[in-house]
Design a binder for these strands. Structure first.
Length: 278
DNA sequence: ACGAGGTCCTGCGAGC
DNA sequence: TGCTCGCAGGACCTCG
């Protein structure tokens, strides 16, 4: 799914298209994506409402409405939110979950092949509770290596799993966890409470570098991800470990390995560069 | 509290 | 060719 860089790209592209627009003709094609909101209330709230702002929190797209409620979309694995300034093709209409007209032939469409994505409609107080449960933003101006370490270190779980724990740190998923750990030369299976201060400083730097570089490249398109205007990202061409099992390590040329032993997710790494106490 | 594993979905590629 | 199986950018839940 879209991780932080993909959602940031979507939001940056959509903001100028959406801000100030009035919504009409909302259509919901599947109700199983709704969380704590009925189809009726969602459609009623969207109809003739105005978009006040579009932003990102962790991996979630936040559309603030003129009535100060927030439409929050979690794309999860295969969701994408795209503005079309023309009619949709049959293929684009396929897998549409939510569609809203923005005016003169322009449509905002949330589509999601696997439909693991979710849609929330939150009051200001519900939003406050929602965002409070998510960890700090890794790219926030005041975020520091010390704060980063303080968030992750209390856990004895594998550092890779902890890095992806949204309650400890916002926005890092499987692709960027793999990339950041490789670049910091840290074994993904190491317990988080056993990393040194120096290792946390390294990991802090590589997490932020990888996320920033991925945003600059408009994100990583493995299969389904598209930017807010329907384009693919380009960071997939820059990945050093994710999806490169068996290929040579960019640093030492040793063949990269993949394990599923950490949280059941694919972890690709260089056993030589990311060895036990490398 | 922790880890393991299932669940929600559909599509795709590998292997037989 | 046509099947079954496992796996896929995530997060939430239950069980032991």
């Amino acid at each position: 799914m879209p991780e932080l860089p993909e959602v940031e790209t979507i939001v940056r592209e959509l903001r100028p298209h959406l801000t100030g627009q009035t919504l009409s003709h909302p259509r919901l094609y599947h109700t199983d994506v709704l969380r704590r909101v009925s189809r009726e209330r969602l459609l009623r709230t969207l109809r003739n409402n105005r978009i006040a702002d579009v932003s990102r929190r962790a991996k979630h797209i936040v559309i603030e409405l003129g009535t100060s409620e927030r439409l929050v979309i979690q794309p999860r694995m295969t969701g994408s939110l795209v503005v079309y300034e023309r009619r949709l093709s049959a293929d684009e209409r396929r897998y549409a979950v939510l569609q809203v007209r923005l005016g003169t032939g322009t449509q905002l469409v949330f589509r999601d092949v696997r439909r693991l994505g979710t849609i929330w409609l939150l009051s200001p107080s519900a939003w406050e509770r929602y965002t409070r449960r998510i960890g700090p933003e890794p790219l926030a101006a005041g975020f520091s290596a010390a704060r980063f370490a303080a968030q992750l270190r209390p856990s004895r779980q594998a550092i890779k799993k902890v890095l992806m724990d949204q309650q400890r740190l916002a926005g890092v998923g499987n692709i960027y966890a793999n990339e950041a750990l490789f670049r910091a030369r840290i074994d993904p299976s190491r317990p988080a409470d056993r990393l040194s201060d120096a290792e946390y400083r390294r990991l802090f730097r590589t997490v932020r570098a990888v996320l920033r570089e991925a945003i600059a490249a408009d994100g990583t398109t493995v299969r389904d991800y598209r930017t807010g205007t329907g384009k693919t990202g380009s960071y997939q061409f820059v990945l050093r470990v994710y999806g490169r099992e068996g290929q040579p390590c960019t640093r030492c040329r040793t063949a990269l390995l993949t394990t599923h032993s950490i949280d059941g997710r694919a972890t690709t790494f260089c056993w030589r560069c990311q060895g036990k106490d490398a």
